[in-house]
Design a protein around this nucleic acid. Structure first.
Lengths: 245, 245
DNA sequence: CGCGAGCTTGATGCCGATCAATGCATGTGG
DNA sequence: CCACATGCATTGATCGGCATCAAGCTCGCG
């Protein structure tokens, strides 16, 4: 295979949604075999993104949505002055690029946190197809709506929770999503740095680190760098719900 | 006219999008006359919501989207424990209810801050129609995408700005939207309390009040309760961009 | 091995929360 | 009409959580 520049590799092989193990998480949810076949037809390529590279950047022309096949991404927005904010972390089966629809340009960066692979979904083809398949249309709308609801949850977190509550919520969210994908709900490896977690949670990296240490002291977690074991998920949940206060 | 309970009044008169002065802000943007006629046909009713009443509440079955015709709303989410967070303020021409699509239930409360009127858009009809009218489909997707982008902006604000910067950003956003609607960009009447502003911005009402006073001292604003006059919008903008720091 | 990126931990300071009192506008009933 | 209640806003004093600054530590890697 030829080497490629800037670590982007297009793979014009047929993508098989129907045999993809993310079928139940990704766009094809709830679609019939025939519908999935038609969806497959428009998802013509995959793209590989090396760790640290961007899938797209703020200002890039918007053409496609991307479904994460393998790997892990972060999305971040930044203001005119240097400030930036991680707005989310995306894992297998999740959709990237919805931000671009509004103005035909991307409004955030999507950066891979490990070598990753995405399915490229040309947006205008998805539009066309979802005019024919109401199940697809419906599902696509649901995905966008859920993204809005997720964002509202993050606002609640940023607006009203204290540092440890934020980290607890973050960890529980991560483990839940990993569990849905068949991973252990107690043992996980963080793909992102303390600084990235901090940016997402509106905290400084030192504060994140201290919160991890505190949780370890209190026996809620076992922390070895990015290796995390959740020992007391209920206690984390209780922290958020403020049962003890 | 009969009195009605819980201050909800349905008006089964024909809604005329084509003669609505919000035509250029609302769903019909960029649609042909014929397309607008068809949209009009599915927007069969209006609904009046008295100040303080909810258009919908968390947990309510989702059936329709709502376009604000007149008045002003806030949306808020709340967690199991009492915490709640204002996630947005909506004015004429803006759409409410997108949160409900994801799970067929609303996930936030939409409360009117003054006597308001909305156009009721049955969602399944919008779905049907947008399968026929690609312009409508496209525009609807844009609206959802922009909501996501807006939410990302709020996350940036909540995650990385200090109190005065947040208030400055909030005021500039408000005046911009009011200006789009033909109002003065320098003189406005706040529809919400200091507490609601604080909830939106992740601050306590005292902090909001102090920031207003500070802006007044510094000659950026004139503040008389909810009557605000913006004297130096560039200075507010500079605050956000951190030109002086 | 030595370097560097990322993580931890401590000391200090500041911003915004909290607590508390007062002010102001509106409305209500005596 | 006044007395009083109520809801909202302002302002001051104090406190605490997180940011900031500053070492040192760990681990992977050239």
């Amino acid at each position: 295979m030829h080497t490629v520049h800037n670590s982007i590799r297009l793979e014009p092989f047929k993508v098989a949604c129907s045999s993809c193990n993310l079928r139940e998480l990704c766009l094809p949810v709830g679609m019939s075999q025939e519908q999935v076949d038609r969806l497959e037809a428009i998802v013509a390529t995959r793209r590989t993104v090396a760790r640290g590279d961007a899938l797209f950047r703020t200002g890039d022309a918007f053409t496609s949505l991307y479904a994460v096949r393998t790997g892990f991404f972060k999305t971040c927005v930044s203001s005119e002055d240097g400030r930036d904010q991680v707005t989310g972390f995306q894992m297998a089966g999740e959709l990237l690029g919805l931000d671009g629809i509004g103005a035909d340009r991307h409004t955030c960066d999507a950066v891979s946190l490990e070598d990753s692979q995405v399915c490229v979904i040309p947006y205008h083809m998805l539009e066309d197809l979802s005019r024919e398949l109401s199940d697809l249309q419906r599902h696509f709308h649901r995905i966008m709506s859920r993204e809005i609801v997720r964002d509202h949850g993050v606002m609640l977190l940023l607006g009203s929770m204290r540092a440890e509550e934020r980290l607890a919520a973050f960890l529980l969210n991560l483990t839940q999503r990993l569990q849905t994908r068949g991973f252990s709900s107690s043992s996980l490896v963080l793909r992102m740095t303390r600084e990235e977690i901090g940016s997402y949670l509106g905290l400084k990296l030192e504060t994140v680190s201290r919160a991890f240490s505190k949780f370890q002291e209190d026996g809620l977690l076992e922390v070895k760098q990015r290796q995390i074991r959740v020992l007391a998920p209920e206690a984390l949940q209780a922290l958020i719900n403020g049962s003890s206060c």
